[in-house]
């Protein structure tokens, strides 16, 4: 009887595991439908795919509440978060400058949701009057166990939204060009992929 138990435990463990850590299969990036979110999402998807060979899937959501619900359910691993949206979600007040806002929401997201905010994409040149908030690649901390190289790769996009070509890219996406192609062409020209 003991043998059957041990044997069966082995089977259950083997058959229930979808994948081993080093054969990890896919990452899911969740995004809102705005052109800016789409573009940032595709920049992340492209650089992760090209620099690590990891399969990345993108899912779009109609509003922030839906996206965040998906994050909480572990249906989404990464998202481009905006520090303004994050403040609102946590019911906090804005600080005096972008850096202090970033520090506050970074700590809040880690403590409350186990989400890691990486280096910001930077202040978008598209919204010069809204310097207080920035977009930030944000990763579910549990994903870093299987994909420890993610921060290093995504941090290569630090400041990308402040690139002088960024408004042109955004206009291109708004005009209907495929965000993934726009992102890939841009990163290739910058020799980042």
């Amino acid at each position: 009887m003991k043998k059957i138990i041990v044997l069966t435990l082995a089977i259950v463990l083997l058959l229930s595991a979808n994948s081993f850590a080093c054969v990890g299969r896919t990452l899911i990036i969740g995004s809102l439908n705005s052109s800016n979110d789409k573009l940032l999402t595709q920049l992340m998807a492209v650089i992760v795919t090209e620099r690590t060979g990891t399969t990345v899937e993108v899912k779009y959501y109609d509003n922030h509440a839906q996206l965040f619900e998906a994050i909480k359910k572990k249906e989404v691993n990464i998202l481009p978060e905006n520090t303004g949206r994050a403040l609102k979600l946590m019911g906090m007040k804005a600080g005096e400058d972008a850096d202090s806002v970033y520090s506050v929401v970074k700590k809040g997201y880690k403590d409350m949701f186990q989400l890691i905010m990486l280096k910001p994409f930077g202040a978008s040149v598209v919204n010069p009057d809204d310097k207080l908030f920035v977009d930030v690649p944000t990763v579910d901390s549990s994903v870093l166990v299987n994909f420890p190289v993610l921060p290093r790769v995504l941090n290569k996009l630090a400041g990308i939204a402040a690139d002088k070509k960024y408004p042109k890219l955004l206009a291109s996406v708004e005009a209907g060009d495929e965000a993934s192609k726009v992102a890939k062409d841009f990163l290739k020209k910058k020799r980042m992929i």
Binding site: M1, I4, I5, L7, T8, I11
Partner: peptide, 17 residues
């Protein structure tokens, strides 16, 4: 044998079959 193991063994046998 604890009840858990008896149930587990029964389930295992059914699974195998």
């Amino acid at each position: 044998m604890p009840k858990f193991f008896r149930l587990f063994s029964l389930w295992a046998t059914i699974y195998f079959l």
